[in-house]
């Protein structure tokens, strides 16, 4: 399996570390919703087909990547930097907790 790192180009699988299912959403750190935490930590969709997942180019540029890969054929469908994705989703998620942070500041 070759993974085409957006920064380094195509590199062998052995340079990469698998970091798991990227379909999950971590609840806010102060969330006390146990079922949300349970589903984040333990529940998996376990897709047979195109699977969205995190990899790190740990033996190369150390970038964290979001890869869409078929679990049936191991074919990689798309690949991108995790930071650009999390930057977008991170902003959406933190929107709810932003006012509270402002309260703490003064």
């Amino acid at each position: 399996m070759l993974i085409n790192c957006p920064y380094c180009g195509p590199r062998d699988l052995c340079e990469f570390t698998y970091q798991g299912d990227a379909n999950r959403t971590r609840p806010a750190p102060d969330s006390t919703d146990l079922s949300a935490w349970n589903s984040y930590v333990y529940e998996r969709v376990n897709t047979a087909g195109d699977h969205r997942e995190y990899w790190q180019h740990s033996g190369g540029c150390r970038s964290h990547l979001v890869v869409v890969r078929s679990t049936l054929t191991h074919e990689i469908k798309s690949i991108g930097m995790a930071r650009s994705e999390t930057a977008q989703t991170g902003r959406q998620e933190s929107a709810g907790s932003a006012p509270r942070r402002q309260e703490k500041r003064p």
Binding site: N46, H51, E53, T71, L72
Partner: peptide, 12 residues
């Protein structure tokens, strides 16, 4: 070490 339903693995 990665999710897979393929009954074959890789070389590493």
């Amino acid at each position: 070490g990665y999710n897979s339903y393929a009954q074959r693995g890789n070389l590493p």
